[in-house]
Design a protein around this nucleic acid. Structure first.
Lengths: 216, 216
DNA sequence: CCCGGGACTGTACAGCTGTTCAGCTTGCTG
DNA sequence: CAGCAAGCTGAACAGCTGTACAGTCCCGGG
């Protein structure tokens, strides 16, 4: 494995230092192959640095892993933050959606990292998912108040389902691409997915009432 | 870690041999903590057997991992198989759904194993997901023909979304339980989830057409 | 009887892991 | 200028990993 100068991580001020390179290298390795595969030596090699320096800057391997985690949380936080308090809930939601999509295309590995974080079952993943449902719920509540959305019996549960659908292209991207022969890099395919999502939510699939679908 | 006699794996004929115990132990460890954490020694300890025997029976650690994978594929295959050729796609689908739910409650670790299988993007996971969408699509097609479901622009994509919703309690069970304060062991909570799912599909959430939800 | 083969074990080993530590360079500050 | 701190390195170590191998038990067939 050789030095990969361009780690595809969002550029932030104070980057380009060895410390930042190490963090980016760790992020990329963890996203691609998981925490176990991201050995101190592999991180160092990728950052073009000695293994000792990794520990010098972060104390331990766990330190690097934690640093990457909080760094991702920061990036995600920026995406989630509402920039314009004037914008209505629907508009704010649309903007978050766009920012998130831009972020995941700018940093392709972010999707892989999130997938690992969620499916790894770490505390982090649980917490992050809960906060995501929080955001989804807030948006849905406002949409209910505005009359855009019909009232739900259990708003939070409905919000969770919406979050699920919205995140699917990130969490199960390879699987959806394979099963549906899509390419989410293609704007057209992304549009198709969003259209199908909108259709599902704007026109009842089982107008007369019937069983929901399920696995197997 | 001590011997865990009851591995919660489906009992099949010819079990109870040391070889079967090893396979079950490996399955449990892989499902709970991942392949890396399932060391040869840990598997042996759990199966109450010497590490050497693990390799004696399966050749290598990879051999054990592969054996578990094909064994899970078999179990899943049994669930998927249509037992009654008379039943239509929708009915067959409903039966698969029931069998799958029974299976995941009988073998709680199966959900965790599936989660990891999907996580690390193995060929197996991709293939399984695709076949799941196949099944969902077949059911949806028939429901369309019967007039139960309204026509979809892209049936397969809609079917994928249905599969997603149906599988969420398995794939993201810990996350949903945490975010929604549910317990999917409780029949009431499962009913609530299914009710919300049905509501989403029988009454349009955004009646006049509006933005779909999404991450962040 | 015995003996051949499978189930099973304990020991040993090379390789990789995270971590420690002594030491080197470089640049800023008194 | 001296010296000190920070960035950075290479060698070394203990622990765990998967695996190889020699050997022990035990049971069924000649």
């Amino acid at each position: 494995m050789e030095r990969a100068a361009d780690e595809q991580a969002p550029v932030r001020p104070d980057d380009l230092t060895a410390k930042a390179r190490i963090r980016n290298a760790a992020f990329a390795l963890i996203a691609q192959d998981g925490v176990d595969a991201a050995t101190v030596r592999a991180i160092a090699r990728r950052a073009d640095v000695s293994p000792s320096l990794v520990l010098h800057h972060f104390g331990s391997k766990q330190g690097v892993v934690d640093e990457v985690a909080t760094w991702v949380a920061d990036v995600l936080g920026d995406v989630t933050r509402d920039t314009d308090p004037q914008a209505g809930p629907a508009e704010a939601h649309r903007r978050r959606q766009l920012r998130f999509e831009r972020m995941t295309t700018e940093v392709p590995l972010l999707g892989a990292y999130l997938r690992r974080m969620l499916l790894d079952g770490t505390e982090n993943g649980l917490e992050w998912f809960a906060r995501t449902v929080d955001a989804s719920e807030a948006g849905l509540n406002q949409r209910e108040a505005l009359g855009i959305a019909r009232p739900s019996v259990d708003v939070r549960m409905t919000a969770a389902m919406l979050a699920l659908l919205g995140f699917a292209p990130v969490l199960l991207r390879p699987h959806l691409e394979h099963a549906l022969r899509l390419d989410f890099d293609d704007e057209d395919d992304r549009r198709r997915w969003r259209a199908a999502e909108t259709a599902l939510l704007t026109r009842a699939l089982y107008p007369r009432g019937a069983v929901a679908d399920a696995p197997a």
